[in-house]
Amino acid sequence: MANIKSAIKRVEVNNKKRTQNQSAKSDMRSQIKQVEKFVEANDVENAKAALRETTQKIDKAVQKGLIHKNNGNRQKARLTKQVNGLGA
């Protein structure tokens, strides 16, 4: 453990931020799985609604730097393609 007061504070802040980031990232992943579940069940209406929420979560994660921009765009494109495939 750190001895210097500022280092102790930095460790606490890092731990707090890490838990917040883990929570946001986990929430995003859960939302992605929700869309995939609706696609699997051929539920078009719920899939489209869930896709809108998921897109927002992914954008927020990119904005916070939790995931890379290209990763976010890839996830959104993949999910959108799956949901659009249901309507056809």
Rank of each mutant, 00 (worst) to 15 (best):
N15I: 06
I8P: 00
N3G: 10
K5H: 06
E36N: 13
K37L: 11
K25M: 08
D27R: 09
E12F: 09
N71K: 12
K57W: 06
N21L: 07
V13M: 09
A2E: 14
K48H: 06
N70Y: 07
L66I: 13
E53N: 15
A77M: 07
S26Y: 10
S6K: 07
V13A: 05
Q56D: 13
K17G: 05
N46M: 09
K76H: 03
A2K: 08
D27T: 12
G87R: 12
D43S: 11
N14T: 09
A49Q: 11
R29M: 10
K5Y: 08
V44M: 04
S23L: 09
L86E: 04
K69D: 15
K16H: 09
Q75I: 15
Q56V: 11
A24V: 11
G87D: 10
T19V: 12
L66H: 07
S23H: 10
N3D: 10
I67M: 08
I4H: 09
V44N: 04
G87C: 08
N73H: 09
N42S: 15
A2L: 07
G85M: 02
T55Y: 07
I8W: 04
A77K: 08
I67C: 06
Q31K: 13
N73R: 06
N84S: 03
A24R: 08
I8H: 05
K81D: 12
E12R: 08
D27A: 15
K37T: 12
Q34D: 12
A49K: 11
D43M: 03
L86M: 07
S26F: 09
R18M: 07
Q75L: 15
A7F: 01
K76F: 02
Q34R: 10
D43Y: 01
R18D: 09
K69N: 12
T54K: 00
K5C: 00
A88C: 04
Q82H: 02
N21W: 06
N15V: 05
G65T: 01
A24K: 12
Q31S: 15
Q20N: 08
I32S: 02
Q20R: 11
E53V: 07
A88T: 11
N14A: 14
D59Y: 05
Q56K: 15
I32V: 11
K37S: 15
R29N: 09
I32H: 00
N21G: 04
N73I: 05
Q31G: 10
K33D: 14
K60Q: 13
Q56C: 04
K81R: 10
